[in-house]
């Protein structure tokens, strides 16, 4: 992805602390309050200009689950009787803390 893409790109890149990269839809990423602020075109942080955000405290496994959740959330946003998302119990606690961090 280009470094200085001033256009509002459709996709953004999320990077875990073990350097896994996830390309997700901007609209899905912005479900997270933290990411929304980071990618907000009105503010002038580096994330905004690069459309890339690195998480120093989230590993690839968790970040993958987060991306899954973001799409899951987007897909079922207005639906009822939604099937539960599959969460491996061992990730539970970590996911919880990440959710608080990401505000989603």
């Amino acid at each position: 992805m280009a470094d200085s893409n001033k256009e509002i790109s459709e996709y953004v890149t999320l990077v875990s602390n073990d350097d896994f990269e996830f390309e997700v839809l901007r609209s899905a990423a912005c479900i997270s309050g933290t990411m929304r602020k980071a990618f907000d075109p009105a503010s002038g942080f580096k994330e905004t200009t690069q459309n890339r955000m690195k998480f120093e405290n989230i590993n690839g496994v968790i970040l993958e689950k987060v991306c899954e959740y973001l799409y899951y959330n987007q897909k079922w946003a207005d639906a009822k009787n939604v099937p539960d998302m599959e969460i491996p119990p061992e990730l539970c606690l970590e996911l919880l803390m990440t959710a608080d961090f990401l505000n989603c």
Partner: peptide, 19 residues
Amino acid sequence: MIAGRGKQRIRPPRRGLAS
């Protein structure tokens, strides 16, 4: 045990993410 979807926040224990 689903985190997310709702707005309710469950405080993580004091270890893990932050040093």
